[in-house]
Structures are given as structure tokens and as C-alpha cells.
Design a protein around this nucleic acid. Structure first.
Lengths: 143, 143
DNA sequence: GTTGAAAACAATTTGGT
DNA sequence: ACCAAATTGTTTTCAAC
């Protein structure tokens, strides 16, 4: 991971669809050199994939929330992956502190949200914070 | 947004580097049709960009946390964007509830984390949950 | 890591249903 | 809205260095 790798990572984080040729122009390296560096970044796991980013709010999922689950023991939602296998749940993070995990969820309506919370409540105590806006929706990893 | 659009979104969320030709094969549509549909998805904002996903933990940032900031009034961190302009802060979400915002942060060491918390404490009261693991690190948006 | 050439591939335009 | 065909251009991938 030298400066050149970070340059490539920066470009690909900003636009994952850049061709090796275009990348080679931007970082002033030959296309084969770029291809091999990117391949190594992929194989080493630094690049975990290339994704089109879809804003849930642009697809009818206008209710976004962070749901903190307090549930320990055998009933904990983390021990029931089928519950977490919902298209409404976009991220699950196990955390330290008074809660066991934090979920990022996005649904179309408050009614859907209520129903999701009801389902989650079977495993523990959900505590919800509605996301009003995201001043920093995302930032690239940099050195 | 019909079924075909969702099919395309699914493919591009799984692999943003697919060519229009390859996409056209997968969804059984001609390349020009795919190109125009994707262009429309981009222009309408449904596709917000294409990003290489870099796992911070693979780049030395092994300390990941969710930091909840309690700070209201003129001193609130949300009114000081320069504070949020840090390479250690990857997401900022304004939320309802007892807190004003939630930050996803990733740093190399606990020492770095301590220093970040110290800086944040100038604006309000940070409450940190360390991310132990992410059972669902990410899920694509689907209908 | 570079260069240059060959082969493969992809994007776009056109004309049409 | 879509397809097919052809053109044009680009990208990738060899090889040799």
C-alpha cells in the first residue's frame, strides 16, 4: 500500500466504473501496471467490491432509522439471522455498551416501520432514532 | 422503476463494473436499451454513484465505532462542518431523540480514538459504541 | 515497471419495428 | 420502448524488453 495504491483507491472510490486505461491516465502509470495493482488490492481484500450506490430515499424508502437493539442471551436477535434477513435492514453492527447491536433500516412508510419494530421487539428492546438527514452520507477511506 | 430496472439495480449493486454489454446479457435486453435505462437511473438520482468499497479494517483502521453526539445549540458539531471534515469520520447522520447526530468513525489505534473523542468533546458529549463486528455489513436496496 | 501491437470487447449510431 | 447491425473507438492482454 504505497502512495500510488492510495491514489488508485481514491479514484475507484469516487468512480468505480473507471477503466484501467482511464485510471492509468489519471495516476500516470501504464495500463498493465494499473491492472496488476488493482488486482492485488482486490485479492488482498482492501477492495471489497464495487457497488452502485442506491439512495433508499429515491426508491420510496423515505423512512430511515437507526435502531438500537437491547437483547442479550439466547433470544438475542444476533442469534436469529433469519430476522436480520430482511430487505428493510441494510446494516447490522454488533456493538459494545448497553446495546447488543445497531441496525440501519429504511422502509417506505411509518406503518412499515411500526411493523418492523414489532417484529424486532420479539427479540429484545428496540430503541429507534429517525435519520433526519445525513450531513456526511459517506466519505472515502484515505491514508 | 419497473422489474427490469430493479434487475439492473441488483446487478450494479453487486458489481458496479459490469459493462452495458454484460448487463444486457444478464437481463436479456439489448445494450442500447440497458444504456438508456442506466442513464435514466443515474439522472433521476436513483443511482447515486459507483464506488469501490474499501474495508477500513483492511487499511489499518481497526478501531471502528459509532459515536453518538449530544450537543444542541450554537456549539453543536453539526454547525461546525470543519470538525466533520476529518478522514476519521466516515458518516454523519442527524437523528431524532436524545442525541443530535451519530457518527461512524474508524481509526488506527485507541490512541487515535481517544484524540478524536477529545476533539469531539469540544462540541458536545460523545457517547461511543465500539463496533465488534458487522453481521450484515451491507445489503443492496431491493423492491 | 514500460512499450507496442493484436485481438477482443464495448459503446454508439442508425434505421427500423 | 425496444432491437439488430454496423461502425467506431476503446480496452485489455499479450509479447518482448
Amino acid at each position: 500500500m504505497d502512495d500510488l495504491d492510495w491514489l488508485l483507491l481514491g479514484e475507484l472510490q469516487a468512480d468505480a466504473r473507471l477503466s484501467f486505461s482511464e485510471l492509468s491516465r489519471r495516476v500516470h502509470l501504464s495500463p498493465p501496471a494499473v491492472a496488476e495493482r488493482v488486482r492485488k488490492l482486490e485479492e488482498s481484500g482492501v477492495i471489497g467490491g464495487y457497488r452502485a450506490h442506491v439512495d433508499p430515499r429515491h426508491t420510496g424508502r423515505s423512512v430511515v432509522a437507526l435502531v438500537t437493539m437491547s437483547c442479550y442471551g439466547p433470544g438475542c436477535v444476533l442469534r436469529h439471522p433469519e430476522m436480520l434477513d430482511s430487505p428493510d435492514i441494510f446494516e447490522v453492527h454488533r456493538v459494545t455498551g448497553g446495546a447488543c447491536c445497531v441496525l440501519r433500516v429504511a422502509v417506505a412508510t411509518m406503518e412499515d416501520f411500526e411493523s418492523l419494530i414489532d417484529r424486532l421487539a420479539a427479540y429484545g428492546t428496540p430503541s429507534s432514532s429517525m435519520v433526519l438527514s445525513s450531513p456526511v452520507p459517506w466519505r472515502p477511506t484515505s491514508p
